[in-house]
Amino acid sequence: MCFSATDPTGGAGMQADLMTLSALGCHPLGVVTAVTVQDTTGVEEIVPMDDDLVVDQARVLLSDVPVSAFKIGVMGSVENIAAIAEIISDYPHLPVVFDPVLSSGRGDELADEEMVIALQELLLPLTTVLTPNSLEARRLAQFGDDDDEDDESDNRQDPLALDECARLLIAAGCGHVLLTGTHESTLRVSNVLYGHGGVIRRDEWDRLPGSYHGSGCTLASALAAWLAQGLDVGAAVQAAQEYTWRTLVNGFRPGMGQYLPDRFFWTRNSNMDADDGSDD
């Protein structure tokens, strides 16, 4: 079950979740949390759904169809965050993948400070795997850091180290943090999976040219798909990254803005291994 905002471009949000989960053999259930006005260059407007409608969408489905995992994206409001947290807390045995989308690829704000605090307090303790990029990880972790009695963050000018971000996010209640390095100035993209004992796995990928819309949604949805099918977290993270890499290598640019991942790349590419750069 996906809790997501719509994206009329098909690049991210609910549409990306539905395509990714379908491509990986799952039957996705969609709960719309907000409606957006956007194109491939950026978000013009976001209109949150009423929280009662979000609850009704989810409860009706959950009373009818068995669910194997939850995937959470943009929620649109503090009220929706609280409503979704209440819903998923009734299913503690199901994995929860939370992609904390705080802004668009262009930098459009999708979550204010009140929402970020609500995410931290209400959803992180329910999350099996959090999938932030480095910007999102630092923003989420700073709130937890501010509450530490020994904190000196008010005097710190440098950004938090990513290992420390992961530690703070896990301390806030996450089971695992898959921290992606696409926004870091490194030669290759380094994605690191953290657990309560520290680093579990580290994967590196060639940095692709161009800018992609929906790569984070694709990764989180793919991870939810593999967890729903019974893989453990480490194996699911590896499989989700490999799938996401292929969608980006085969990405396309339908408009004047960012490239979009091709979630059904194999229907246009009979040689699925031709563009695999994971061993380069």
Rank of each mutant, 00 (worst) to 15 (best):
Cys2Phe: 04
Cys2Gly: 14
Ser4Val: 11
Pro8Ala: 08
Thr9Ala: 08
Gly10Ser: 13
Leu18Phe: 14
Met19Thr: 14
Leu24Cys: 14
Leu24Tyr: 09
Gly25Glu: 04
Gly30Asn: 09
Val31Leu: 10
Thr33His: 02
Thr33Cys: 02
Val37Gln: 10
Thr41Trp: 05
Thr41Cys: 08
Thr41Leu: 12
Ile46Val: 15
Met49Leu: 13
Met49His: 07
Met49Ile: 13
Leu53Gln: 15
Val54Leu: 09
Ser68Phe: 04
Ser77Pro: 14
Ile84Thr: 10
Ala85Ser: 06
Ile88Asp: 00
Ser89Ile: 05
Ser89Thr: 11
Pro92Asp: 08
Val96Lys: 08
Val96Met: 07
Val96Asp: 11
Phe98Ile: 07
Ser103Asp: 12
Gly107Trp: 01
Asp108Arg: 14
Glu114Gln: 15
Glu114Thr: 15
Met115Ile: 06
Ala118Pro: 02
Leu119Glu: 08
Gln120His: 09
Leu122Cys: 13
Leu123Asp: 02
Leu130Trp: 01
Leu130Gly: 01
Thr131Met: 03
Arg139Gln: 10
Gln142Phe: 12
Gly144His: 00
Asp151Ile: 00
Asp151Met: 03
Ser153Ala: 05
Asn155Trp: 10
Arg167Met: 10
Gly173Arg: 04
Gly175Ser: 13
Leu178Ala: 07
Leu179Ile: 14
Thr180Asn: 00
Thr182Lys: 08
Gly195Tyr: 08
Ile200Gly: 04
Arg201Ala: 12
Arg201Tyr: 00
Arg202Ala: 09
Trp205Thr: 14
Leu208Thr: 05
Pro209Gly: 10
Ser211Cys: 11
Ser211Phe: 13
Gly216Tyr: 00
Leu219Met: 04
Ala220Asn: 07
Ala224Met: 02
Ala225Gly: 09
Ala228Met: 02
Gly230His: 00
Gly234Pro: 04
Ala240Met: 01
Gln241Ala: 13
Glu242Trp: 01
Leu260Phe: 12
Phe264Met: 11
Asp273Phe: 14
Asp275Pro: 05
Asp275Lys: 08
Asp279Ile: 13
Asp280Leu: 14
